[in-house]
Design a protein around this nucleic acid. Structure first.
Length: 368
DNA sequence: TGCATTTGACCGAA
DNA sequence: TTCGGTCAAATGCA
């Protein structure tokens, strides 16, 4: 408490170290994935994503240095208090909410369970829908969150008791952009339910029984389903993650990937085609930045960003977990972090009823 | 009747 | 002490 300034300086130094590590790891990530990937287009994509990630981390490091330089002794050390803030505050008017979100992302985490965050947008801010990610969820709670305009919904897998499935998710609408939802997934699905291809509107008829292809990766399933129309994919810079909501309303917005944990051993060789497919479509265990993917929202796909926080055993070290935390903050604090530069895509589908993201998306998405 | 949602209470980490 | 996360009884709906 009393050596707040020193602690702050220490935390900045730690942050700088972590960001530097992150830059290096981003490079390694790009190289690793490119090396592992037989498809040159995907390799190039990963390299590009890694480069953007590296760039963003570099910016974050620069920002941290600026904060450190601007507040040498500093009152920011007590920024949990009422002391005036500076530096990143200039980037937007949502600092209070941002800090709350940062705290929220820190609190009450179940240690040892993989946790990752999806941020996605819907085309219509008036939309009152719950995300349909292809799994069955049961809402078990709702909580007003301090500093948040909207309550947070708590969901667990429908088969929690029947099949001891520990998967849970939290859904919260963004304060600053009503079109944006933050979904935090925690735990792997241990149940046997197959991730179904989701439909844009829940009122539509349910998907057909799982065909053989659903024994493979969900994204492979999706590729095998009624995919009749040509896709148009817009990439970085064409549609900002935080801007330009589309207009098509939707009763629900599916994003079938996040519920499949990102911890397939992507680097492990396997003779099992299904496992191979899953591995190929999953980020490596060392990646906390799975490639962003499009999200189908009633026919349109919207950029999405994920953060993954894996158990220590799956990570490269303690600092990796901390780095994941940094990126979590980057994602949950858009006002203070240019997360849109991490990954960026948008795709649009000609078929407004197309029930799936065109590329499967992470953790399994070859989106090229 | 069974399942899902709502909501107030409780627990526990920070 | 605060507040996010979970529990479980009450309620709603098909």
């Amino acid at each position: 408490m009393q050596d707040g300034a020193g602690a702050e300086a220490g935390s900045i130094q730690t942050l700088l170290t972590l960001l530097a590590d992150g830059e290096e790891q981003a490079l390694q990530l790009g190289d690793m994935m490119a090396a592992d990937d037989p498809w040159s287009s995907r390799a190039e994509h990963y390299r590009g994503a890694a480069r953007r990630l590296q760039c963003t981390l570099g910016k974050a490091a620069a920002a941290a240095r600026a904060i450190e330089a601007a507040a040498p002794g500093s009152s920011r050390a007590t920024d949990r208090s009422d002391s005036p803030r500076s530096a990143d505050e200039s980037s937007g008017g949502t600092t209070v909410a941002t800090e709350v979100q940062e705290r929220q992302s820190m609190c009450k985490r179940r240690k040892g369970l993989p946790r990752w965050t999806a941020k996605f947008r819907v085309p219509d801010a008036s939309l009152e829908a719950t995300p349909d990610d292809g799994f069955s969820w049961r809402k078990y709670g709702q909580k007003d969150i301090l500093g948040a305009k909207f309550p947070r919904g708590y969901y667990r897998c429908t088969y929690r008791t029947a099949q001891a499935c520990a998967a849970t998710k939290q859904v919260q609408r963004s304060d600053t952009d009503l079109c944006v939802f933050d979904v935090t997934y925690q735990g792997e699905h241990a149940c046997h339910q197959k991730q179904r291809a989701t439909v844009a509107a829940k009122s539509q008829s349910p998907p057909p029984p799982a065909p053989l292809e659903q024994q493979l990766d969900p994204s492979m399933q999706l590729l095998g389903m009624g995919f009749k129309r040509v896709l148009k994919v817009e990439t970085a810079g064409l549609h900002d993650h935080d801007h330009g909501p589309a207009s098509a309303p939707a009763a629900s917005f599916p994003f079938p990937f996040p519920s499949v944990p990102p911890f397939h051993q992507a680097g492990e060789a396997t003779d099992n085609p299904a496992a191979a497919a899953a591995a190929a479509f999953s980020p490596p265990a060392s990646s906390y930045f799975p490639p962003q993917h499009p999200v189908v929202v009633d026919g349109s796909c919207y950029a999405d960003i994920y953060d993954y926080e894996a158990p220590g055993a799956r990570m490269r070290g303690a600092e990796s977990s901390e780095l994941g935390e940094v990126v979590t903050r980057a994602i949950t604090a858009p006002a203070a972090f240019d997360y849109s530069s991490l990954f960026h895509h948008q795709a649009e589908l000609d078929d407004p009823h197309l029930p799936f993201p065109p590329f499967g998306g992470p953790p399994h998405g070859p989106y090229q």
